[in-house]
């Protein structure tokens, strides 16, 4: 199942309110086109808050504007599911 939450515009103030939990997130450009599907895993020092901030500081993503996340302790399998959705799931899946 894809992430259905609304996109949120990133700013340092907004980023500071993201929880430090484990989970998955997506980063998009201003038009809402997904640029990155990633997770904040067990080795991330500040969970989603740190991982999303790092994505917006990444020089490889200059067009990053929007994000959305999901707190999820099963972040690896959820991330795989989202990656599969983003890549275009096969016709025989429900997505």
């Amino acid at each position: 199942m894809p992430l259905h939450k609304p996109w949120v515009e990133f700013s340092p103030q907004v980023g500071a309110r993201i929880p430090g939990s484990l989970g998955v997130f997506e980063v998009a450009d201003a038009a809402g086109a997904t640029l990155r599907v990633a997770y904040a895993g067990g080795r991330s020092p500040f969970g989603l808050r740190g991982a999303i901030a790092a994505a917006f500081a990444d020089p490889a993503l200059p067009q990053a504007r929007l994000f959305r996340y999901e707190v999820n302790s099963m972040y690896i399998t959820r991330w795989k599911e989202l990656v599969r959705s983003a890549e275009g799931a096969p016709a025989w899946t429900c997505e």
């Binding site: 199942m1 099963m74 690896i76 399998t77 599911e81 899946t93 429900c94």
Partner: peptide, 14 residues
Amino acid sequence: MVRRIVHTLRSAHY
């Protein structure tokens, strides 16, 4: 049809 992925306690495979 694969209806959905089922997430469980298991980290390795869904």
